[in-house]
Amino acid sequence: MVQTTVSNSMGNKQERYDALVTVYSADLFRYALWLCRHRPMAEDLVQETFLRAWKSLHSLRDDKAAKTWLFTILRRENARQYERYSPGFVDDYDFDGVADDANEDDEQVAQLRESINMLADEYREPLTLQVIAGYSSKEIAEILDLTPGTVNTRVFRARKQLMELMSAGGQSVVQGVTG
């Protein structure tokens, strides 16, 4: 009887875990990359996030909360690294492999990536959560422990700076914004 219980819960746990990996690993990787801006480290962060998730999967009661749970684990992992180590060496601008992607709007996208890289962390992170994870200001505010108003201000400034950087780089996609 005991054995049956174990194999059932193992099976469920495994399936649940595999589903989480399949659904969220790409977005988590992108979030990680914009946090640490270093591809190998971003992958390590995602790996570490899922190892932790596996170990405490039992504490995730509601699968609807899984996404925020995973993003929060990853964010905490990243913070743990920054607390322990001086960030100097991880701050490499490192997107090798990016140029291989044939589907992309090449030059402008590449320039925009450089501009995103130049944003202050406090602007880039809420923008990443909004664009990649599709979170609302309220959800971002909860993850980052800010008010929704602050989140709005930061994503506004992030976009404004990006558009300024793009027009300074001679791109015609943007025009001035007031306010």
């Binding site: 690993s25 990787f29 990359l33 899922f50 596996w54 990016v98 925009l112 995103i116 943007v174």
Partner: peptide
């Protein structure tokens, strides 16, 4: 136009075998 570029820029390519490596590591 800007938003579509922004989404493309943020959606950096993900390592091909990421999913299988995550499962392998576990």
């Amino acid at each position: 136009r800007f938003e579509s570029l922004l989404a493309s820029a943020m959606a950096v390519p993900v390592p091909e075998a990421l999913v299988s490596r995550i499962k392998l590591r576990k």
